[in-house]
Simulated scan of single mutants.
Amino acid sequence: MIRLIGILVGLGFAFVVLLTFAIGFYTWSTEESTETAEHAFHQEAIAPDGGFAFDGPLGNWDIAQLQRGYQVYKEVCAACHSLNYVAFRNLGDLAYSEAQVKAEAESWMVPGINPDTGEAAMRAATPVDYFPSPYPNAVAAAAANNNAIPPDLSLMTKARPNGSNYVYSLLTGYDDAATYTNEDGHRFAEQFPDSMPGTGLYFNPYFANLNIAMAPPLTTAGQVTYADGTEATVDQMSADVAAFLTWTAEPKMIARKQTGWWVLAFTLFATILAWFAKKQVWAAVKPKRED
């Protein structure tokens, strides 16, 4: 009797599952799909002309570009965004000398302790310190940015699909929602008037929901004066800071690629040795002939 009840209960569960699946399939197949603004106007990230020097299995860091990207971050992005996982000493990997790293660190102020009073105070950073946040806490960050907390940029290119291209596209992709037209010739303002950016928001087709709280950070050529004399166009500055943030997210990327080539070479060499060893071991063994 108990076994019969168990079978009936199991069949009941199976029936409910099949019925739920059937209802869901029927609803999915008959319901009219409603195209959203994000689906119709979101654009996939694109790379700058010529791509990045670190792209591909043989890519390498463009140190000059990384230094320019750091300059863009320092003079533009650092006003709102932190690099909590990057220490000043890491700048030595960008071909800065020890003295330059020390001087660069001292140009930043970080939280510390007043040795005379024991109270919290700001002090000049040292190479072992990490890049500080521009805000004391999340509440202050939200209050200064229309209730949107600027994210830390240390790992941003790893946190977004196609991260390097995403950062570049986002910085260069701001547009006027009232006149924006997609590749199909549809005007955003006419097709989705209810999705127009509200107060404090800006239209960007590369952002997930099209409306972003961050104002365009790079707006005019020459906004940054590069130390190496490179012309600082919006496109150039965007590509440079995208490359720099790729380095902050994965500083060992090039070393990983180079190690991968050695691993492949060793694997190929070991395979060849194993094949010759197999030939040597079985050389004296003749296959049996079938009569």
Rank of each mutant, 00 (worst) to 15 (best):
I7F: 15
L8N: 14
L19I: 12
I23L: 11
G24S: 08
E35M: 14
T36Q: 11
A40T: 05
P48F: 05
P48W: 05
P57C: 02
Y70H: 14
Y70P: 02
Y73P: 07
K74E: 14
E75N: 13
L83P: 02
F88M: 06
R89G: 10
R89I: 10
R89K: 14
L94W: 00
K102H: 02
E104W: 09
E106V: 05
M109I: 09
P115N: 04
T117A: 02
G118T: 12
A120M: 13
A121D: 13
A124S: 14
Y130D: 07
F131P: 02
N137S: 12
N137L: 11
N146G: 01
A148F: 11
A148N: 07
L155P: 00
T157C: 00
K158G: 10
N162K: 14
Y168Q: 03
Y168V: 03
L171G: 05
Y174L: 03
D176P: 06
R187P: 00
E190D: 15
Q191L: 13
P193W: 07
M196D: 00
P197T: 06
T199C: 13
F207G: 00
N211D: 06
N211P: 03
A213M: 09
L218V: 15
A221I: 05
Y226L: 11
T233K: 00
D235A: 14
A239G: 01
A243T: 08
E250V: 00
I254T: 02
R256F: 01
T259I: 06
W261F: 15
W262R: 12
T267N: 07
L268S: 09
A283M: 08
V285L: 03
